[in-house]
Amino acid sequence: MSIQVENNLKTEEHKDKFEQTAHYIPCKIDSDGPANVEKYFVPYIVDKDGELTASFRGHSLDGKKMTLPEGYRAVTVTETKRPLAEDVERKFQVTGGFKEFTYWNWDQKPTKNDKMERAFDWIDISDAMHGD
């Protein structure tokens, strides 16, 4: 199976599309599609000197803003039509992305020991292994 990702969006022209807001919620949400984030979530975010709080489904959340490591960015893609057969080429379109996101923990302040933060260690190691 080969995968083709196509980008028709120029970074300069679509700055806003590549700087979207993203939230990492510490909860598996069994849903795929649009969500009323602006209405139900954003109004309850309180920022006290960078220490963020919010609430999701009655659970208190503590969060902080995180920026993706230098040289990396997140990209969102969509597939217009998923082919029925396996082992055929699949085509994805870039729809946007983000450079920073809000990381939320359930009822505990984010720390350097959180898995998300530590996962970025891999990038240094990967650099050392595969970099020039």
Partner: peptide, 14 residues
Amino acid sequence: IDHVFGYPMLVRFS
């Protein structure tokens, strides 16, 4: 009911 967020904050989720 909101499919993702459940209820507005008036409701006691617990």
